[in-house]
Design a protein around this nucleic acid. Structure first.
Length: 667
DNA sequence: TGCGGCGGCGCC
DNA sequence: AAAGGGCGCCGCCGCA
């Protein structure tokens, strides 16, 4: 397929890291230094320096008119620069939306790192990195820190053009070594661009008040900590120093050391995180008073999420909207979306309602005191996202999506019992409790069991999940629960085992499609070494790059397992080989389940795109649209219909998604 | 001074 | 044999 690979080099007074690509591109100080382009078919290359008065190269315009795609690394950035600056200011031809294609998105669907350099390294592309790159950016792309002037040195500009050309060539090499996005994946990426361009509106007045209150509280905590520790700790963010200080102050209390001890990667470490602080406060009476006060200060301060308010303000454009928050296929292992910049996927769920938010906002506006400042502020994060005047949010999420998809994916007739519980609207947690011989009063146990054990998790998974719900059980009882759940749900246990076997079989017979429930495995030789592909019911491909069969020793002999390159872990500078992971049944079941839930979301987003529904946010199992007030009813009906109507590939999957209307984002 | 590692936070 | 994993951001800390 003929395409034009491009890369812009730009300069600006805006810090792109802080403000994000969209605010960067729309700022008046942002300008194009050069554009490099290469035709994939003819090999012809162009470097265009528009600031020197060069007109857009005519032969490049001709190639663009004939090419099917225009490809860039993080194409959303290049698209924004093209549309905000290159076309309107310098006369580059205008391009249609559909022509854009992102090589970073292509890397992510291949489960490789997004960033060009990292992807090239993961692919083993041997090249000399141009040492001038970073230096040139520092000199030409940001104003001189002393004079505030931009450097216009024409010689350096030409060097920049050469550096830019190297990046384009490298990108095109990466394109050759990886699987291209399917038409559906490309469309999903384009839909993500639309959502990112729409942006989410921020209550910037509220955000500014929160920033001010957080700063004041931070200073007070700092004062308290400094006095308490005689200057050893001066900020609540000094977690390592704080940890060591507590250990020192409590060395005569042996229990403290043991509570603070955790095992990570087979190594003993001390930790002082939220959960450990809570356990320390449980034995308050045995601790020195000043240590208890210290823990209270750290607890109060450690709502790090309040930093998001500053991020909102940094990224908000003139219309108070934050753009560019969503990353298509950001999660390489499941192909789910990720969120970047202002991370919208991890905002505290437990939050104030509209009335409480307005009251707090009014109090802060009058400079009145508020209680438990940091905690209160972090509960204002979601409500700080608001619709434009005259509009409302229409919101819906799928009920227990993973709990439904997992049994459905197995295709096991014995899993129908579980699916029937969902179909009939019964309480799955009570059902789980009942199958283990527990009563209705043990619903909480049923809930933690359902959430924690589906992916081969055992005592550890249950205990961690239980803590989130304030459930603490003796280990013996947890062992019993795990055993009972697995006996009551043999479809799950068999599925884990069969997933693992299917992966190994597919690796042994490359090219052969191995069916496993409603999914398939196939090993593709010659793609990033050998890539093990998991194919989901909608044909989404989950890739395990550079997969190998390994033989591992076990207490009863040995067995064959599949290992693969883990893109999300970057190797240390001195390590040659990329970090690897080993597949096991529960992990495959989880990747497939989350991937299929993501496929449902992408399907709904396409349906909504067909109907021009203005989606502004989504969070894995939740969709938020911003619609004019008089349309809320019809749009809510549409949203429910789209989310509850099964795609043709999901026959028999019970789905439920009841919509809500909101005037601020909430839970 | 800049950068990467690491501990910590929070959501699905 | 057993195994919770998927994300991204903030801030400190040590190193170059």
């Amino acid at each position: 397929m003929r395409y034009i690979g491009i890369d812009f080099e730009t300069r600006s007074r805006v810090d792109i890291k802080k403000a994000g690509a969209y605010r960067y591109a729309s700022d008046l100080s942002t300008d194009v230094l050069c554009l490099h382009a290469m035709d994939s078919e003819t090999g012809e290359e162009w470097t265009w320096y528009p600031r020197s008065g060069e007109v857009f190269p005519g032969t490049l315009a001709e190639s663009l008119a004939e090419a099917v795609l225009i490809v860039a690394s993080n194409a959303e950035f290049d698209k924004a620069i093209w549309e905000f600056i290159a076309a309107p200011v310098y006369g580059a031809p205008s391009l249609k939306h559909e022509i854009w294609y992102c090589s970073q998105a292509q890397c992510r669907v291949n489960a490789l790192p997004s960033a060009l350099e990292k992807a090239a390294r993961a692919l083993g592309i041997k090249r000399r990195k141009d040492p001038r790159g970073n230096a040139l950016i520092k000199v030409l792309s940001i104003p001189d820190p002393k004079t505030g002037e931009f450097n216009e040195d024409p010689k350096l500009m030409v060097e920049m053009g050469e550096y830019c050309a190297q990046d384009v060539r490298l990108m095109m090499q990466v394109m050759k070594l990886t699987r291209w996005m399917s038409a559906t994946e490309h469309r999903d990426w384009l839909i993500t661009c639309d959502i990112n361009e729409r942006g989410a509106r921020i209550d910037t007045d509220l955000a500014r008040l929160c920033v001010a209150y957080a700063a004041q509280e931070r200073d007070e905590i700092a004062k308290g900590l400094t006095i308490l520790t005689k200057g050893v700790i001066t900020k609540h963010t000094q977690s390592v120093r704080g940890r060591d200080w507590v250990l020192e102050q409590c060395k005569h209390v042996p229990a403290v050391r043991s509570i603070m001890t955790v095992v990570k990667n087979n190594e003993e470490k001390r930790s002082f995180d939220k959960e450990i602080r809570a356990r320390l406060l449980d034995m308050e009476d045995d601790l020195p008073n000043h240590v208890v006060d210290f823990i209270d200060f750290m607890d109060d301060g450690n709502k790090s999420s309040v930093a998001k308010f500053q991020r909102m303000l940094d990224m908000a454009e003139i219309d108070d909207r934050v753009r560019g928050a969503f990353v298509f296929a950001g999660a390489g292992q499941t192909q789910r979306f990720a969120s970047r910049g202002l991370q919208l996927h991890n905002m505290r769920r437990d939050c104030w309602n509209v009335e409480q938010t307005e009251e707090l906002k009014a109090r802060m506006g009058r400079n009145h005191a508020i209680n438990a400042v940091m905690d209160t502020l972090s509960q204002l994060l979601r409500p700080a996202i608001i619709p434009a005047p005259g509009k409302k949010f229409v919101v819906s999420d799928w009920s227990a999506i993973e709990g439904r998809v997992l049994p459905w994916l197995t295709g096991d007739p014995r899993a129908e019992v579980v699916l029937d519980i969902y179909r009939s609207g019964q309480d799955i947690y009570l059902h789980t409790a009942a199958t283990m011989g527990l009563t209705d009063s043990d619903r909480q146990i049923g809930k933690v069991t359902t959430l924690a054990l589906g992916y081969q998790g055992a005592v550890g998974a249950f205990t961690v999940m239980g803590k989130n719900y304030g459930l603490y059980l003796p280990e013996k009882q947890v062992v019993d629960i795990v055993q009972k759940w697995r006996r009551a749900n043999p479809w799950a246990v068999d599925y884990w085992r069969n997933c693992e076997r299917a992966a190994v079989r597919a690796m042994k017979y490359p090219g052969e499609y191995v069916q496993i429930g409603r999914c398939q495995f196939v090993a593709v030789e010659g793609l990033i070494g050998t890539t093990l592909c998991g194919i989901l019911p909608d044909n989404t491909v989950i890739q395990y790059p550079d997969a190998r069969l390994d033989y591992v020793q076990t207490p009863h002999g040995g067995k064959t397992v599949v290992s693969y390159m883990k893109a999300s872990l970057t190797p240390k500078a001195d390590e040659k080989e990329w970090p690897r992971h080993t597949l096991y049944g529960g992990l495959i079941a989880e990747n497939f389940t989350q991937g299929t839930a993501g496929a449902l979301l992408k399907h709904s987003l396409r349906e909504l795109d067909d109907r021009r529904a203005p989606v502004v946010l989504h969070v894995h199992d939740e969709i938020i649209m911003e619609v004019p007030e008089r349309q809320t009813k019809s749009r809510a009906e549409l949203l429910q219909k789209v989310m509850e109507t099964l795609p043709e590939w999901a026959d028999g999957l019970p789905l439920k998604a009841v919509p809500k209307i909101m005037t601020r984002y909430g839970k």
